[in-house]
Amino acid sequence: MDTELIGRAQHGDEEAFASLAVAVGDRLHAVAHRILRDTDLAEDATQLALLAIWRDLPRLRDPARFDAWSYRLLVRACYAEGRRTRRWTPNVRLLPADEPEMAEGLSSVVDRDQLERGFRRLSIDHRAVVVLHHYLDLPLEEVADVVGVPIGTVRSRLHHAMRGLRAALEADARPAAQEVAR
């Protein structure tokens, strides 16, 4: 991230912050959407996070830490949004025609649907760790810094989350198979 731009925004330069927001907005929104699994909530969380970044930017001591710091504020905004509304979208299976191109590694529409439902069963604490590590590729030490918990807790959450997703993939597959058999 451009530390000169961050420095100007820290001193109240709205134009510099606008450039900063354009540079990081998509990335923050993508993360929020993956944690919250809801477009409206993700937009609200991203907006909340960007305003928090603007408001607290003067308190950021080391501009080089901007990325991790901004993820920290975003995850907090996700907590706030998740807690505030709890207006999760219903567990409706997507129609194949509505779905994007199948990504490599996703064996079927069923996998995607199972993952969606399994992921929604996780708490936001657990979702955040999965997204930060497996989507942003942050090392576990950095994930711990972002979510503000010890690395042992991050490992535990990640283990629990992945076990839950694996169980969702396997357990949800069983009724489907039985249904086909009938």
Binding site: L28, H29, L106, L165
Partner: peptide, 17 residues
């Protein structure tokens, strides 16, 4: 499972309106 989850996370919204 990790591979499937990573692929699944790659899908979806990225652009902030």
């Amino acid at each position: 499972v990790t591979h499937i989850v990573r692929s699944w996370l790659e899908e979806g919204v990225t652009a902030l309106p």
